[in-house]
Simulated assay, not measured.
Amino acid sequence: MEFWRHAVRMAACPADVVTWPRQTNQSAVSVCAEVREAGVLRVSIAIMLLWIVSGSLLLFGSFDVWYFLRATWMVIKSWFQGPVRDVLAEQVVHGRVFLHDLDFMCHMNNARYLRECDFARYAYCTRNGLFLAARALDASMLIGATTIRYRRSLAFGEAFELRTRIVAWDEKSFYLEQRFVSKTDGFVSAVMLCRQNVIRGNPQRILDHLCKRKVDCPEISEDLQHWIRFISASSQALRAESGLDDKTK
Score class of each variant (00 low, 15 high):
Y113M: 01
V18R: 10
D16V: 14
H226W: 05
K172H: 11
S44N: 10
A233L: 05
N109C: 04
T126Y: 04
N202P: 01
D103Q: 08
E177W: 00
Q23M: 08
S78G: 12
E90R: 12
L130N: 06
G201F: 04
V18E: 15
Q236H: 09
P218D: 06
C32I: 09
F230D: 15
K212F: 08
M10Q: 13
P21N: 15
S153W: 05
W51R: 13
R85E: 12
R149E: 04
N110C: 06
R85P: 02
I228N: 05
A111T: 11
R213G: 08
I206H: 00
L224A: 06
S173Q: 15
D170C: 08
S189N: 10
V215C: 06
Q204A: 12
G243V: 05
A89E: 14
L102T: 13
V87G: 06
V87E: 08
L137A: 07
Q23P: 07
Y122S: 10
A133H: 05
R121M: 10
A71F: 05
G55N: 07
A145G: 12
V43E: 14
I143F: 10
G144N: 05
D223L: 06
I220C: 09
R239W: 12
W169Q: 03
R239M: 15
L130Q: 04
D208Q: 08
S234N: 11
I148Q: 01
V40Q: 13
S173R: 13
L207R: 09
A71Y: 09
G82R: 02
K212L: 13
M192F: 00
R96Q: 12
A71H: 01
Q178L: 03
C32W: 10
F3R: 15
R70S: 03
T146Y: 01
S78C: 13
M74G: 05
A233N: 10
C106A: 15
G157E: 06
T72K: 06
I206Y: 00
E116I: 00
A168R: 08
R112H: 14
F119N: 01
N109F: 03
F119Y: 15
A15I: 12
R165F: 01
Q204F: 01
T147G: 04
H226F: 11
S27L: 11
L41V: 02
E177Y: 00
D86E: 13
S30V: 11
A145R: 11
R112L: 12
I231R: 11
M48Q: 13
P14K: 02
A38D: 11
K172N: 13
F60G: 03
V29T: 12
L58T: 14
A46H: 11
D118F: 00
I220K: 06
A134I: 01
V75Q: 11
A145E: 13
D138Q: 07
G82E: 02
A33E: 02
D245M: 04
E222W: 09
F98E: 15
V198Q: 01
M141V: 14
L88R: 08
C13N: 15
D245P: 07
I45F: 09
D208L: 01
Q178R: 02
D118L: 02
A111C: 02
A11W: 07
F68A: 09
A123H: 03
C194S: 14
V43T: 13
L88A: 07
A120M: 04
E241F: 13
V97H: 06
Q225K: 12
E161F: 02
L58A: 14
A159K: 12
F180H: 03
L193G: 06
V65L: 14
S44P: 00
A240V: 11
A12R: 13
T126G: 04
W66T: 14
V215W: 00
I231S: 12
F98N: 13
L99C: 08
